[in-house]
Amino acid sequence: MDHDDATCLAAWRRGDTEALGALVEKYRRPLFGYLVRFANDPHQADEWFQETWVRAIQHMNLFRQRNFQGWLFRIAHNLVVDHLRRKKPEVSLDAPATEEGAPWKARLADPALSPALAAAGRDLGRQIEAAANRLPPEQREVFWLRMAADLPFKEIARVQRVSINTALARMQYALDKLRADLGPAYRELQEMTP
């Protein structure tokens, strides 16, 4: 376990509430950054953020010497999975929309190619966010755990309970889809590197 995390947890167990505050602050950005990408709105992400901590602390005896970061994100992952299981789409995008059988997605403008998104081409980050949110859940999670929470693949693999090779492969599938979805805009990324 991270030395700072272990120190804070030991202090919290002795009744030091400031130690808990320090831990919450440390994981504020990565944990919320991950949760907000799966929540319906920031309020729900905030609710999950608090719930993750409550569950982590209530079951603190279960992880002992294991990695606290992994433990925390595993709990957050469970919240997200529960949410995704409950949130079943009312209409599948692949379901036939008409008697002729044309699927809904064929009748909707491709967001990646819409004039609105083309106009928002300056804001590449928003396009990436939108495209990432169209990824299958397991790839989307790897993408955001890596890009928003800055978790290493070893840790992502633990959170998803898969091998590190599977986590890496999911990231590669996600990148392939982003490239295909964003087209030329994706290649602009090269220019963003100093």
Binding site: D46, G125, M192
Partner: peptide, 14 residues
């Protein structure tokens, strides 16, 4: 490297 830089921070936090 560009991808990591391009992704915006969430507009809100906890």
């Amino acid at each position: 490297q560009g991808l990591a830089r391009a992704i915006p921070e969430p507009s809100t936090g906890p």
